[in-house]
């Protein structure tokens, strides 16, 4: 297996046309290696989310190439792209995007439902993912009845349920207070370390970026050299983080 999960070169992306045209990405090249945790950091509006969407095949670049595990994304069929997003990628967004009237379990198994997994297996795998995040006692609750931290853990369970190779997280702690945010970070890094899931984290938070193996800095749609990295925070395990949450 190639060591590069994602290999992007000279990615350009603009929004709008004519006078209203805005170049969100002006030629970004970057790689994501198998099993690493990578931070895409930059100020608001620098193009981080746009880049992540292109890496995750949610959007197509105007120019430049993207290879996924060595395969040019331009050669992929629509079916391949759907399968990649469904089976190999997991998503964590700043807004939780939980379906409000559905139960926590129903939310978590949504990717499996889309994949066409049967009801029994869905429940088994969904409960396993919830157990890993110590949310199994909330499985039958409505998603709206959860606290912010619980919601983001449910979202991570959903990202995890189809055993992805890469988890894309866009400002995963942006909506959480510092303590809860720290716990969610711990969960993500534990998954990276213990299950070898590659992490791509979009953030404007220097501290979170510093905890990643590598950082890519964006400014105005261009990659810039990294400023001096700050000291990384002491890492915690999922188990200890969860104990703190439930305490």
């Amino acid at each position: 297996m190639p060591d590069l999960v994602l290999d992007a070169s000279a990615i350009q992306k603009s929004y709008g046309r004519g006078d209203g045209r805005f170049d969100a990405l002006k030629g970004v090249s970057m790689q994501v290696r198998r099993g690493e945790s990578l931070a895409i950091i930059g100020k608001s509006g620098s193009g981080k989310s746009t880049l992540m969407h292109i890496l995750a095949l949610l959007d197509a670049p105007d120019a430049g190439t993207l290879a996924i595990e060595g395969v040019d994304s331009a050669s992929l069929s629509q079916t391949d792209i759907h399968r990649l997003r469904n089976r190999d990628f997991g998503f964590v967004f700043q807004q939780f995007f939980l379906v409000p009237d559905a139960t926590v379990l129903e939310n978590v198994v949504l990717p499996l439902k889309i994949a066409g997994v049967g009801a029994r297996e869905r429940t088994e795998r969904g409960m396993a993912a919830l157990r890993a995040l110590e949310l199994d006692d909330k499985a039958k609750n409505r998603a709206t009845a959860l606290s912010g931290g619980q919601k983001q853990r449910a979202v991570i369970a959903r990202a995890l349920v189809n055993s992805p190779t890469v988890i894309f997280a866009d400002e995963p702690t942006g909506n959480l207070d510092t303590v809860t945010g720290g716990l969610v970070e711990d969960i993500l890094f534990d998954l990276n370390r213990e299950q070898g899931i590659t992490l791509v984290i979009v953030t404007h938070d220097e501290e979170l970026a510093a905890r990643c193996d590598r950082q890519i800095h964006l400014r105005d749609g261009l990659e810039i050299d990294a400023p001096e990295p700050t000291a990384s925070a002491p890492s915690r395990t999922v188990a200890s983080a969860v104990q703190e949450v439930s305490a």
């Binding site: 995750a56 949610l58 629509q78 759907h82 399968r83 990649l84 997003r85 469904n86 089976r87 998503f91 807004q95 995007f97 379906v99 949504l110 990717p111 889309i114 994949a115």
Partner: peptide, 13 residues
């Protein structure tokens, strides 16, 4: 809208 977007992001055709 968001639910639809989410489902499509997760590979729903």
């Amino acid at each position: 809208t968001r639910e639809i977007g989410l489902m499509k992001a997760m590979g729903m055709r």
